[in-house]
Structure formats: structure tokens, C-alpha cells
Design a protein around this nucleic acid. Structure first.
Length: 586
RNA sequence: GCGCUUGUAGCUCAGCUGGAUAGAGCAUCGGCCUUCUAAGCCGAGGGUCGCAGGUUCGAGUCCUGCCAAGCGUACCA
């Protein structure tokens, strides 16, 4: 609809150019909007206002000339000039009706577009360290990321969803050592648990399982473990050096192979838990990409070599640095520490190099907002590798703060008392969890009210949309009970009897769906879809209260049924994208 | 100190990339169930869009400077 209008306006502008009214060199940026106010027609454009200055003309006068030059089209029933020079278009009602048959014809495909056809996009999200279960913060990234990916797919992109598994590095060593220490406790060895260890209950469970299946195979005497270990924080020492020493001790006492058992079992168990958690939440991936595989395949060395050849690496204080400050980062970054270990950033460079080499047109990373400081250095590394950094988009998701009514829910990873995603799902349910996560702009700090999400009342916005869907279903059931046949063709042939204000409003809203979907996708803003569905539900509920659908007159009845079935279809398409259920009865 | 993000109704948030009289939900107040589900609808009140400048026909939206909140500023991941 908008495209047609745009074409008409362009023709008019061209005519005026030929007449010399407008300088031929000017190409206006035409914006067409859905009018907010019905008095302003269905669509409005500001071309006249934009062109007034370069054309050295009064906007209203110019608007009149443009309107005069507009080709006649049956789509438009009336054109008005308003305010400072807006051109308002009133769409011919007959043209609006076709949306109903279009929706019912296309069904689940209505709204999908081919905008991104032929383009490959990779979306990486969640990527939480596999050192414990996902918590509510990850949940927001999961819901947001999966919907963004699905929206892109709906817009025609080929989407590759990926989880980057940090299965290398110190955090994993801390996990392995934590499990071992808990295991020793199972065996009866008394070793104080380090401040910096993972204290969650799940660590004990994994340790317990190992003890059950392996008995005392991994048991080592407590004296040997604590011998000469520097003190922990409560004893006046440093918790970091303390735990590092414990890790080193674990490796010596167990040997590489046995230590690796703990590492692998911990990784496997937790990763399995994360996968299952996400799958239950409706979040699925094409690939779980291992950081370790980058180290083992030599990809990290290769990436560093490429940076070195490009002249971006230098040695200082025994460490190897990447000169990211030359490419916009605030300071240079260490890639190889003075102890010879690669930093996390080094493998991250290799990972992004790998993504680029895979030939994606777009790379989308969804990160927690606390990682924002990382963006400049990653972009710098991509540029240093000679690639196009604009291919990478990093979307930040702000933390969700949990409330239970007025009361803030405390979360602490240290104590192991944090609220897990699983607990949240169980408490508020799948639909409410997804809806709440995705109904706010991702950059918006979010208050997640558990009480509101759990409430099965009118306070809860999730039910509002679902209820609209269920109501349509209910009407169709009533139709059956009355033994009335639904005559789709009769309804289609008589859509022009849908002249009530509420019906016209529904038609325009329905027609907006494809555009909303595309915008949501291209702007990575699922909340736009959520708001749209809310609006559609509102208009349906209003209509429902204002008019009876199951009326005696079969012509009006079937026309209205077709309209509400179109509403049902669009609600279903939208909710499906959000992976929110469409209950037939509530 | 510097950087990123955010300041819009009592609360939680939208605001379609600069447009017309700033919108919704919750909360408050008042109405609507013998007729398709009242998890709904209709109506009312509620605003210096953090503050101050600037850009222009026009600013919640853009630019500058302040103020406030969250996060980040590691040879941690």
C-alpha cells in the first residue's frame, strides 16, 4: 500500500521536475506514515514540507502542486492538504477489504517477506559460561535472541543460530576443582571450600554422582591438598591466588587425565542442563561452537599470526599486545599473557575471524550489557584482519531486575541462591516468561515483576492477547452449536458490508502486520511485534463488545466471521513467532 | 575521571529514525454481564517528555553542556 503511494508521489515529483517547479537535482526522501488520527486519512506524507526549502516555495502551495500532479489511482478515494503542508491520503475502502482474503489465502505465511532473501546471517546469543545453570538474566538474552533470529527468518534471511561455549579457560578450571573438592567431601576428606569456588547445589550433585559411580578413585588425602596452599580471603590471603593454587594442586595430585575427567563431566553435565533448559524454553540452535576447538585446531595462533603480519601485535612487559587503540579502542589489549596463556580475547578474535570466514552477510552478537566495553576491541580486531567491521552488529541486553510485587528479589551467584531460568519458567510459566522478556526494548533496564507475571488476572498482559485469540475460537464453536454453516465465499463477496468504524480500524491494523514484522526484524526489535499484537487484540476486544458476529443475516455474519478469522490468523502468526501458545479456550 | 546505556503520567513502559492535540497497561474514580467467555468494554482524572541552551517551517526524537541512575573501565572469563 505504502509502496504504491510512494510510486504515485514520485511520479508527481518527476512531473514537477519536468515543469521546472522543482530543481531536477533534488531527490526527496519520501516518508509515508500511517496516520494516527483518522481525520488525517489513512496515510500521510511530508514531501511538500521537505521539498519546500530546496524548491524555494511555501509548503502548502507546493503541496497543492504535488496533489495536482498526482496520477489518478483507484486506491485513493480522497486527498487532502492539511496543517503546514501534509498531504493526507484516504484509501478507498474497497481496496482495504482485500486484506482479509489475502490473510486467509496466505494463512501462516501471511506477513513473511523476502527482504533478506539470499543473505546469510549468524546470530549468536546467550553463550553463558557452562559453569552453572542459566539464571534469569540469561533468560532475557535467550528470549530476545531467539525471537530476533526467528524474525530475521520471517524476513527471508537464512539464519544460523549459535551458542559460543566457553569450554576453555580459568572459569572451567575453577568449576572442575570445585566439583573435585565437593567430591572429596563426599569421600569424607575435610578440605575448606574456597571463597571463589562455585558454591551452587548443582556442584554438589555432580560431585555426588561421580562419587556414586567412581567410588574413591579420585580421592586424595586432605593434608596433601592444603599443604603450602596460600591462604584464602577470610584468612587474610587473596582468593584468586588461593584458588589458582588449588587448581594447580588438583592437576598435580590427580594427573592430567583424571583431572580432565572432572573437567569433562562438569562441562558435559552443565551444558546438557543448559541445552535442555533452552530447548524447553523454545530456544534452539544450529550450532554449539566450542572455544576449545579453536585452541586445538590452531585457529587462535592463526588469527594472531594474521594480526602480527598486519603489524598490529607487539611485545611489552613479557606479554603480547594487540594495538586496538589504533582502531578506535581506548587502549591496547593483551592477547598472550606473560605466563604464556592466551587471554579470552585472543580466542574471541579467532572466533570472529572464523565467523567472517564462514561468509555471513551479517553477524549479530547478542551480549549482556556488562560486555559493552568489549565492542570496540572486537570491531578493532575485525578491521585489523582486513575485514568489514560493519558486518558485525552487537546488540546489548540490559539486565532484568526481579521483583515480587514491591520487593526486589536478591540474586547472588556467589551464594548459589540466584534465581535460575528454570525456576522462573516453572513459577510464571512459559508464555508469561517469554512475553515479559520480549515486550520491552532490549536496551531498556527491565523490571520483571514475578507477581504480575504469575497473576492469572486482568493485570497480566499475556492473557490479553491470548484471550482475543480464544474468543475468536469460541465464536466459531458457538457457530457450530447453532448449526450454522460458515460460508467463506459468501463472506468474501460481501466484505464491503464491513463499514462500521471498528471494522475499518481492524482492516487497517491487519494490513500493517507485514510492515511491522519487517521493521521488527530489520531493527532487531521484537517488542514492536508485541505491541502490535496488543493493539490488534485491543481493537478486536473493542469490536467484540460493540457488535454481535453471529447475527441472523448470513451476509453480514459471514463477512464478520471472515474478518475475525483474519484477526485470528494474524494473532496466531505473531504469537507463533514469539513461541507463545494460542489457547483455543481460556 | 573517561566510556556505554537509560531518564516520558503515582508505577511499568510505547512513541513508527524530525511531523499534526505526547500514548498504552497497572493503580484511582464512575459506568456496562437474561444476548458470541467481564482474563473483556466504555468514560474520567493524571505530563515543564531530567535541566538549560542550540539547529528549523516543526524537537520527546538531532547537536552541545550540565544533573541523576545502571553498567563498564584487568596480563578475569
Amino acid at each position: 500500500m505504502k509502496q504504491k503511494l510512494e510510486a504515485l508521489i514520485l511520479t508527481a515529483v518527476d512531473t514537477l521536475k519536468n515543469e521546472g517547479v522543482i530543481d531536477a537535482g533534488i531527490t526527496p526522501k519520501i516518508t509515508i506514515e500511517n496516520s494516527r488520527d483518522l481525520q488525517h486519512g489513512d496515510f500521510a506524507t511530508n514531501v511538500a514540507l521537505v521539498l519546500a526549502k530546496p524548491a524555494k516555495s511555501n509548503p502548502r502551495a507546493l503541496a497543492e502542486k504535488i496533489v495536482a500532479a498526482l496520477p489518478k489511482d483507484e486506491l485513493v478515494s480522497r486527498i487532502e492538504i492539511a496543517g503546514p503542508g501534509f498531504i493526507n491520503f484516504f484509501i478507498n475502502p474497497d481496496a482495504q477489504f482485500q486484506i482479509v482474503s489475502q490473510i486467509l489465502d496466505q494463512g501462516a505465511k501471511f506477513g513473511l517477506s523476502q527482504t533478506g532473501a539470499g543473505q546469510k546471517v549468524q546470530v549468536e546469543f546467550v553463550s553463558a559460561n557452562p559453569t552453572g545453570p542459566l539464571h534469569v538474566g540469561h533468560g532475557r538474552g535467550a528470549a530476545y535472541g531467539s525471537v530476533v533470529a526467528d524474525l530475521l527468518e520471517a524476513a527471508g534471511f537464512t539464519v544460523h543460530r549459535e551458542y559460543y561455549v566457553n569450554d576453555a579457560g580459568r572459569q572451567m578450571d575453577i568449576l572442575a576443582t570445585s566439583i573435585w573438592l565437593r567430591y572429596l567431601a563426599e569421600c569424607g576428606e575435610v578440605v575448606p571450600f574456597p571463597t571463589n569456588g562455585y558454591r551452587g547445589e548443582y556442584v554438589r550433585e555432580i560431585a555426588g554422582d561421580i562419587h556414586k559411580s567412581a567410588g574413591n578413585d579420585y580421592r586424595r588425602p586432605a593434608e596433601l591438598i592444603v599443604e603450602d596452599i596460600p591462604p584464602d580471603e577470610p584468612q587474610g590471603g587473596d582468593k584468586e591466588t588461593h584458588i589458582d593454587a588449588l587448581i594447580a594442586r588438583a592437576k598435580t595430585l590427580l594427573g592430567v587425565s583424571l583431572y580432565e575427567d572432572f573437567f569433562q563431566i562438569g562441562l558435559k553435565t552443565i551444558l546438557q542442563d543448559i541445552r535442555q533448559d533452552l530447548a524447553e524454553f523454545g530456544v534452539n540452535y544450529q550450532e554449539w561452537f566450542s572455544e576449545r576447538s579453536l585452541m586445538e585446531s590452531g585457529a587462535v595462533e592463526e588469527a594472531l599470526d594474521r594480526l602480527r603480519q598486519a603489524g598490529y601485535l607487539y611485545e611489552q612487559d613479557g606479554a603480547t599486545w594487540f594495538a586496538s587503540s589504533r582502531l578506535g579502542d581506548e587502549k591496547d589489549r593483551v592477547v598472550i599473557r606473560d605466563n604464556g596463556q592466551m587471554t579470552y580475547f585472543a580466542s574471541d578474535i579467532a572466533y570472529h575471524m572464523n565467523k567472517l570466514d564462514r561468509g555471513y552477510d551479517k553477524i549479530v552478537n547478542i551480549w549482556g550489557a556488562d560486555h559493552h566495553g568489549y565492542i570496540p576491541r572486537v570491531k578493532a580486531s575485525i578491521e585489523a584482519l582486513g575485514a568489514d567491521a560493519s558486518k558485525l552488529t552487537v546488540l546489548l541486553v540490559q539486565f532484568a531486575v526481579l521483583y515480587r510485587g514491591e520487593e526486589k528479589v536478591q540474586m547472588s551467584t556467589r551464594s548459589g541462591e540466584f534465581v535460575t531460568l528454570r525456576q522462573l519458567r516453572n513459577e510464571v510459566g512459559q508464555d508469561a516468561a517469554r512475553f515479559f522478556y520480549v515486550m520491552r526494548r532490549s536496551e531498556q533496564h527491565m523490571d520483571f515483576d514475578l507477581k504480575l507475571a504469575t497473576s492469572k488476572s486482568n493485570e497480566n498482559p499475556v492473557y490479553y492477547v491470548q484471550y482475543a485469540y480464544a474468543r475468536v475460537c469460541s465464536v466459531l464453536r458457538q457457530l457450530d452449536e447453532k448449526n450454522w454453516e460458515r460460508d467463506i465465499t459468501l463472506g468474501m463477496d460481501n466484505l464491503n458490508c464491513l463499514r462500521e468504524e471498528h471494522e475499518m480500524a481492524l482492516l487497517t491494523t491487519l494490513a500493517r502486520y507485514p510492515e511491522v514484522l519487517e521493521r521488527s526484524a530489520l531493527m532487531y526489535e521484537p517488542h514492536q511485534l508485541v505491541h502490535y499484537l496488543r493493539d490488534l487484540a485491543t481493537e478486536f476486544h473493542t469490536y467484540y463488545n460493540a457488535h454481535q458476529f453471529l447475527v441472523e443475516d448470513p451476509v453480514i455474519r459471514n463477512a464478520r466471521l471472515n474478518l475475525i478469522c483474519a484477526v485470528k490468523q494474524v494473532l496466531s502468526n505473531g504469537l507463533l513467532l514469539l513461541k507463545i501458545n494460542t489457547p483455543e479456550a481460556m
